Simulated scan of single mutants.
Amino acid sequence: MTERPPLHRSILRTLCRGLGLFGILLVAVWGGAAFFYSTLEPTALRLGLSGLFPVALLACLAIRRPLYRRSAMLGISLILAVWFLTDPARNDRDWAPEYSQMADATVEGRVAHVTHIRNFTYRTPTDATPAYYDADYNLDTLSSVDLVTSYWAGSAIAHVFLSFGFSDGRHLAISIETRRQKRFAYSTIAGFFHHYELFYVTADERDLIGVRTDIRREQVYIYRLQLSPAARERLLLSYLSELHMLTTHPRWYNTLTANCTTEILARSGASPRWRLDWRVLLSGYTASLAYDIGLLDQHDPFATLQRLSLIKRPEGARPSANYSQEIREHLPLNTP
């Protein structure tokens, strides 16, 4: 009479098999999505691989001999891993108009030279007249750094970026975004894969903030970061250095690890404790994270500060030459 294995071993074996099957399904789905959202051309190749990979991986389950089955699965998975890890980000794609021109920055002595600062004039969210300009900024006149959060769909998700202010009244806004190709529509899911390059939009506030307040009619807040002059300068120089680096060494955007919030924290040198905070992923709460870190004015509770930091624009307003001054007239932008 055959002795049955103990019940707990049978349960453990079933559980391990279930977890193994779940892992295989997870790799199949992830691999198919990685190919589907990739930048491979032609489109037929991209779509074909997105279907072929999960089918090939799951077909391995039909192999009876465990060694052959595992070897086949491992080989197919390694092909995916090698392709994904060696898939290069590029700067020479057919970009959407707002991402077609990269800015660049160099620093000589105490002067930062920034080229191709974007200054589009928007008539509608999708209709704009492109324009760019170059400018020099004396680092000794850097007077403020503002955190901008823009909401368009609830309170949990927002786009977050910084704007650097100078004592002559000029502002240089830098927004870390996805660099989208013309042939692809925007997709939140695509940001988890190699679909978008990382792009530092360097723009005039009339463009970067104005399109959100006056054209898209989003809820936009501006908070003054409480930084020392030395910290402000280090932050700006870190941004400009990365801006220049991306012109020759492009990087992939990633919704989890290289997005508008994580890049700000990386550039600011925030401790790992704050980089792992749940509010990094739910970017709508980034301002409250900055408040808890001590980077925002602490005189009022955060709820009060947030209410007072909302930009209020008249109906039908359009960004003018004095836009930066207009949007700050009634905001609690205290300096340290």
Rank of each mutant, 00 (worst) to 15 (best):
S320T: 15
I293F: 02
G269T: 06
D168K: 04
A158Q: 09
T43S: 14
D204R: 10
M102Y: 07
P66F: 07
P130G: 08
F120T: 11
P97C: 05
P125S: 04
S155L: 10
V55A: 13
D297N: 14
Q219S: 15
L246M: 11
A203E: 01
V29N: 08
R180K: 15
R216Y: 01
I222S: 12
A158D: 08
E242D: 13
A287V: 06
S100W: 00
V280K: 03
S271A: 13
V107W: 08
A317N: 05
A112D: 04
L139K: 08
T14N: 13
H8R: 15
R216E: 08
A203P: 01
D207E: 05
L67Q: 07
R93Q: 14
L52P: 01
D140W: 05
Y122N: 09
L147D: 00
P336K: 05
V55I: 15
H159C: 05
A203M: 03
P301G: 07
L80H: 10
Y196R: 03
S10W: 09
N322Q: 14
L331E: 11
L58K: 09
R318E: 08
Y323N: 06
A266R: 13
M1E: 13
P314V: 10
T248E: 12
L52S: 04
L243T: 09
E233D: 12
F35C: 03
Q325N: 12
A153L: 12
N91F: 03
L67C: 01
F22M: 14
A112Q: 02
T124I: 00
